[in-house]
Every structure is written in C-alpha cells, then in structure tokens.
Computed example of a mutant assay.
Amino acid sequence: MTVIGVLKKIVFYIALVAIWELVYKLGVDVFSIWKSYTFPSPFQVAKSLYNLVKDNTLFVAILASMGRLLLGYLLSVVIGLSLGLFIVRFKYIGDNIKALILGLQTLPSICWVPFAILWYGISEQSIIFVIAMGSIFSISIATEGAISNVYPLYIKAAKTMGAKGLKLYINVIIPAALPGIVAGMKQGWSFAWRALMAGEMISSSKGLGYVLMVGRDVGDISQVVAVMVVIIALGLLLDKVVFGRIETNIRQKWGLKTEI
C-alpha cells in the first residue's frame, strides 16, 4: 500500500472517531438523550484501554485468548477439511448429511457451551471445544462447495492423462479448489472468534471474553467497548497479515486479479 493510501485510511478513521465524539456530545451534553455511562466517548474508551494496558490485564487476556483461539481453530481446520473431503468423496453420504451440517452451522456458538461444561467441566478444554464446534461446519461446507465447483474440464483433462483417485485430488482438484477453501477457512476464523467470546464469557477466569464480562458486570461500558475495539483490531491485523497474504499469493499463482 502506498503512503497516500495509508494517509487516506488514517484520515478516514480519524473522521470516524470525530463523528463518534460528536454523537456523544449531542446525545449526552446537548439533548440529554442518554446517560454517559450507557454510551461512552472515545476519550473514556481510550482511558479504559490505557488502564487495561497499565495493569497488564490486556496483554495477559490477549495471550490467553489467542492461545485458545489458535488451538481451537487448528482443530476445526483439520476436522472441517476432512469432513468436507469426506462428503464430496462419498456422494450418497454427502447428499444426506449436507443438510444436517448446514443446520448445525446455523446454531449459535453459545448452544455448545452446556455440552462443553457437561463433558469437560469448566476448563480450557471446554472453551477449545466451543471454538472448534463454532467453525468446523463452515469450513466443511466451504470445502465441499469449492471442490464441487471445480471446473469439470480440469478433471476430464487430468483423467485423460491417467490421474485418478488420491492422485487426482492432490494434484488437480484440491489445488483448483484452493481459493474457495481458503475463503472458507477465513470465514471459519471469524466464527472461531465469536465462539471464543461465548466460551470465555461463561467458563474462563482470564481472556478477552472474561474482561468483557467483568466490564458488563460492573457496568463499565467504556471497558466493554475498549475490549471490542481490541478484538476488532486483532481480527483486522490477523486477516491482513495471514489470510490476506495467503489469498494474494494464491490469486497471483492462478493469474487472478488482486484488485478490482
């Protein structure tokens, strides 16, 4: 990204903060539509963020949450990809189980929390279970869709050259479906974040979800918003650094446009 592009982004976010402050001033000080403790100003959020950094609460929470998130997400990727390949490979089973997987995907992550507590107790394993269950099905659905939509000519050409079975999948089908699979993994990552918050807010003593819950319990809305800002920032950073680079490399390798 060019220097001008970076400056444009900075100006855009400064404008958003300015609008936020204006809305706060109008709603609280001018028209008294709501109380200050129900809708914080940017300065109150910044102060809460500073306090969380100062007493090291934020860094401990980020490390705890990221450890759980990465472990749960990696588990969901392995299971989700395997499940997606399975329902593609065995058409009869796939045709009957796809609707079930789609239905399970529509379940909110919070629905898995009672199972996690009953099976694993209030522990790290229960949170990781919720994370995995929150993203497994979206990855498997995306994998199935990406493989099913591979251009048939690629498969026919590979078969005429003797490729079949596992060799056909490894050398032709999976590489051709890779852009769609990566898109599904990216979507699964966002679902994993949501599941992490659901798990940590119920069965954790540390982590971003726990800090969010503490802010809610003590009525500190500025702390709640501060944690939300941190979650958004981490999500954007990881998306740019990890998934953004992977998608760019894949699109360049396949000769696709990287910008529209």
Rank of each mutant, 00 (worst) to 15 (best):
M1P: 14
V3C: 11
G5K: 02
V6P: 12
V17E: 06
I19N: 10
W20Q: 03
L22Y: 13
L22E: 11
V23N: 02
G27M: 14
V28I: 15
V28P: 07
I33V: 15
I33H: 04
S41L: 04
P42D: 00
P42Y: 04
L49H: 14
L49C: 12
L49R: 13
Y50S: 08
N51T: 10
N51C: 12
L52S: 11
K54L: 14
I62K: 02
M66K: 02
L70W: 11
G72H: 00
L74Q: 02
L75E: 07
S76Y: 09
S76K: 11
G80V: 03
L81H: 06
L83G: 00
G84Y: 02
F86M: 06
V88R: 13
R89C: 01
R89E: 13
F90D: 00
I93L: 06
I93V: 03
I93T: 05
N96T: 14
L104Y: 02
L107G: 06
I110S: 11
C111I: 10
W112C: 05
P114K: 09
Y120T: 14
S123C: 10
E124M: 14
E124W: 14
I127Q: 06
F137M: 03
S140C: 07
E144I: 08
A146F: 11
Y151T: 09
Y151I: 14
P152H: 09
I155W: 12
A157L: 08
L166Q: 05
L166K: 09
L168H: 02
I170D: 01
I170H: 08
N171I: 06
N171V: 12
A177L: 04
L178E: 01
P179K: 10
P179G: 00
I181D: 01
V182F: 08
A183C: 15
M185E: 01
K186C: 06
Q187P: 05
Q187G: 11
W189R: 00
S190N: 00
F191W: 00
A192F: 09
A192N: 08
W193S: 02
M201C: 05
M201I: 11
M201R: 07
S203V: 13
S204W: 11
S205M: 08
K206N: 13
L212H: 09
M213W: 08
G215I: 05
I221P: 06
I232P: 05
I232A: 07
G235W: 05
G235H: 02
L236T: 03
V241K: 04
V242M: 01
G244Y: 05
R245Y: 12
E247Q: 15
T248Q: 10
I250N: 10
W254V: 11
G255F: 12
T258D: 04
